[in-house]
Amino acid sequence: MLENAFKYQEQMWQSIGETFVMVGISVGAAVLLGLPLGTLLYFCRKGQLYENKKLSLVLNTLVNIVRSFPFLLLVVAMIPVTRLIVGTAIGTIAATVPLSIVAIAYYSRLVEQALLEIPRGTTEAALSMGASRLGLIFKFLYVEARSGLVLGLTTSTISFISFSTVMGVVGGGGVGDFAIRYGYQRYETEVMAYAIVVMIVLVQIVQFSGSTIARLLDKK
């Protein structure tokens, strides 16, 4: 029975690779674009340093729209955009486009929340010593929020792993797609169970690493 589960081992390795590519790129997008977007969301909020009602409304609406899409529909709806960006709407790389869009919107919210935890006085102290905008962000805000930022990224990564499982619809592959095609559709329950175990292990590793790093970074 056990050997049954492992009989598509080669395809399994390939699927794990695809999951890593999809999740890896979307985590990259979350950090590179979600972090600045979340910081902007924070600054533009009512009562914050660069309060800006219009910009705040636009950004919030955009982020909420992306997050309210049923993910599968977003993937389909984004096909023209994907084609524009990577030249094709099919395959693992193409699948990273909608995933990254969700990643950016998702993580930006968590960044905003992590920054809101910082006491007001920290910003005040920074400004009183003549910090520039970048000085304030990098020497004060990100330093004080760093454990929250890491925990947020951990939660996000786990969501991206979950989102990546439906990427079969655009030929994205990944462990989730493997579980459906080799396990579910071929009635090979052992294969499906094996794929789910792989997912569970992945999520556990991500959560454990994230929590550990966040704890080590927290000196409060």
């Binding site: 006491p119 006085g121 920290t122 005040e124 102290a125 009183s128 010593m129 003549g130 910090a131 520039s132 000085g135 020497k139 004060f140 330093v143 004080e144 760093r146 454990s147 970074l217 927290d218 000196k219 409060k220």
Partner: peptide
């Protein structure tokens, strides 16, 4: 212009010496 506060407003995640160093870095 130096400024101190009721709630101290130190950067909690960095050491004492780094806290004192930050205004110098900014300058």
């Amino acid at each position: 212009i130096g400024m101190i506060f009721q709630q101290f407003n130190l950067v909690a995640n960095v050491s004492v010496s780094r806290n004192v160093s930050i205004p110098l870095e900014l300058a």
